[in-house]
């Protein structure tokens, strides 16, 4: 016990899990938000609103249980052998999958708001020039909504970064620098949650864990400030 601590593996694990979650959830949310605001009939929105609300309200521990029951075996039995590896399924990919579902309602809600603030005249003008509806979306809406989309994604990112229990339950918690998505990881929030019990028995361990919490806080606040500011600007300009 030299009183030295390193957080490199934990930060890398956190990045892996978060980026995978965003890569999975981002496109789905974007496509679905366009569908719901541009194409879908009102009845679809009336169905999807409660769905989004309930999904947002499900506690993270339930997502964790679902991850253990459904995602972990799926990754272990199907995804692992696909790459010729035999793994338990407790891996960064499982964490990313569970997280992706958890952040979908947050990102989707913001994206729907963003697309709603874009004035309808823009669409109408472009349609009158002979463009198809999809061309309007591609060339006008997406460009206009770009800052809003970026901020929705970064809010989702920060939400994923701080998520604790659900990830902790499926990610494996092995202290090693992960080099692939099928390996177990050990993200920062899981580190704090797993070790608070021993916090007072090892000298200066409490400071190290609090530093982990500080890193988490600073990153999340930074992302939040940037994205909230972007949203604020979008809302002011329209």
């Amino acid at each position: 016990m030299s009183g030295q601590f390193g957080m490199y593996p934990f930060i890398i694990s956190s990045l892996w899990v978060t980026v995978i979650a965003l890569l999975l959830a981002g496109p789905v949310c974007l496509l679905s938000a366009i569908h719901l605001t541009q194409y879908a009939r009102p009845i679809v929105l009336r169905i999807m609103h409660p769905v989004i609300d309930i999904l947002a309200g499900i506690p993270s521990v339930i997502f964790g249980v679902w991850g253990v029951l459904a995602i972990v075996p799926f990754v272990g039995d199907h995804i692992g052998p696909l790459f010729g590896k035999s793994i338990t399924g407790y891996s960064i990919l499982s964490g990313g999958l569970v997280l992706a579902v958890m952040i979908i309602p947050f990102i989707l809600n913001i994206l729907i708001e963003v697309f709603r603030t874009i004035p309808e005249e823009l669409t109408e003008v472009t349609l009158s020039l002979g463009a198809t509806h999809w061309m309007v979306i591609k060339h006008v809406l997406l460009r206009k909504a770009f800052p809003g989309i970026i901020s929705a994604f970064s809010l989702g990112l920060s939400r994923a970064f701080g998520e604790t229990i659900a990830v902790l339950m499926v990610v494996g918690n092995v202290t090693r620098i992960p080099t692939g998505a099928l390996q177990p990881g050990y993200p920062l929030p899981a580190l704090i949650a797993n070790n608070y019990g021993e916090m007072l028995s090892i000298p200066r361990y409490d400071s190290a864990l609090m530093l982990a919490a500080l890193v988490l806080l600073v990153i999340v606040i930074l992302f939040n400030i940037i994205s909230r500011w972007l949203i604020f600007r979008v809302e002011r300009n329209t």
Binding site: T164, I192, Y196, A213, L216, V220, I221, N224, R228
Partner: peptide, 14 residues
């Protein structure tokens, strides 16, 4: 809004 985004584990540690 920023406070809403702070992860609950940070509140717990605090």
């Amino acid at each position: 809004d920023v406070m809403w985004g702070i992860p609950s584990i940070v509140y717990g540690a605090f």
